[in-house]
């Protein structure tokens, strides 16, 4: 039997290689979300020219979403490993309440209170990861349960009441506008975005996390410590959730046991919508950032045009569902491409 080096399949592959565009302009779908976002901005500039493009509005939009962005950035770490963290918003609430309770009721310095809050978040993450990996239980259920327990603890800490009057210094650190009239918390969130980006794209940790999320068996058979990475990822999300809580209490000056829960769905919506931008099919920080501001642009614009409060629910809920449909379509299309060959 003669050895044929170039089999028909291989030459078919060669043809296919010619169609693969390299670099920035491959897969133009990657920029679809940015395109829609820009179109949305232009639409509102035309429709509400007095209020929408004003400095006050831009500053408000950018600053008000920093908490959500930080929370979503925490969320995409376990999501990259294929795990949900449903407790992250409860951790945010607990953290905010701890800062307020220690600072206002106990008279602690606000930075000490903030450290305690972040450590509490860290501990909850360690617990989540422990239960998930040691007993091999779906994190969806574990974090749902732990998240509810955390809500209960929050009520105990704040005695079921809103605590206001948190040290002004924290507000200053979060809300002062040193340049471009944009509050500082926006810059913190962008800085965290860069950190997560570095972690995801430029470290071995990020690559291994990606494999854990894409195919656990492949990761395991390549010597990746799957359980440890999932544990670390869940610890990261809870810790970042607590940081988001500190930022939240800084921006509002008070904390209550309910309002944090409203962040959970928007954070998921932003994460999933973000995975349809820039790196399609992957949870990525810059895509998440774009998604957060895309969503707030739509909501703010519609409210300025006279829409009621309910537009938020319609927008966030709709965005989440549309995002998962989109990513499914993109994925099955690329699989079809593969099969056609």
């Amino acid at each position: 039997m003669s050895i044929v080096d170039k089999t028909p399949t291989e030459s078919a592959d060669n043809v296919d290689a010619g169609r693969v565009r390299r670099g920035f302009f491959r897969e133009p779908e990657r920029f679809a979300l940015i395109g829609v976002w820009i179109a949305l901005i232009i639409f509102f500039v035309i429709m509400v020219p007095q209020t929408f493009p004003s400095t006050a509005n831009l500053s408000n939009m950018l600053g008000s979403q920093a908490v959500l962005l930080i929370l979503a950035l925490g969320l995409i770490i376990p999501l990259r490993a294929g795990d949900y963290d449903l407790s992250i918003a409860s951790v945010l609430t607990l953290s905010a309440v701890i800062v307020a309770a220690l600072n206002v009721n106990q008279g602690w310095p606000v930075w000490q209170a903030a450290i305690v809050a972040v450590v509490a978040g860290f501990a909850i993450g360690v617990l989540n990861g422990f239960i998930v990996t040691k007993f091999d239980i779906d994190p969806f259920i574990v974090t749902l349960g732990i998240g509810t327990v955390v809500v209960g603890i929050t009520y105990i800490v704040c005695n079921s009441a809103t605590i206001s009057g948190v040290d002004r210094i924290l507000s200053k650190v979060m809300l002062s506008k040193p340049f471009l009239s944009i509050p500082l918390d926006f810059y913190y969130a962008v800085a965290l975005c860069a950190v997560v980006w570095y972690l995801f794209d430029f470290t071995a940790f990020g690559q291994r996390l990606l494999f854990v999320g894409q195919n656990r068996d492949v990761a395991r058979l390549n010597g990746v410590a799957v359980s440890r990475l999932r544990w670390i990822a869940l610890t990261c999300s809870a810790t970042i959730g607590a940081v988001a809580g500190v930022v939240y209490v800084g921006t509002t000056g008070s904390a209550d046991p309910v309002s944090g829960a409203g962040f959970l769905l928007p954070a998921f919506a932003a994460s999933f919508l973000g995975s349809t931008a820039l790196r399609i099919g992957r949870f990525n920080p810059w895509g998440t950032l774009i998604a957060v501001y895309f969503l707030v642009t739509g909501i703010t614009g519609l409210q300025l045009m006279g829409a009621q409060q309910y537009v938020q629910q319609l927008f966030y809920g709709g965005a989440l569902v549309i995002a998962v449909i989109l990513s499914k379509i993109v994925r099955s299309r690329s699989e079809r491409k593969r099969l056609v060959k």
């Binding site: 430029f202 940790f205 291994r208 990606l210 195919n215 492949v218």
Partner: peptide
Amino acid sequence: AEGAAQGLTVVENLALPFLTGHSRGWRLRW
């Protein structure tokens, strides 16, 4: 199911066992 993550790129799949040897500090040398 077990050999490679089909949705990731060739370089990502081939690099997986070599990540530690090809990084400066934390940073991967892509």
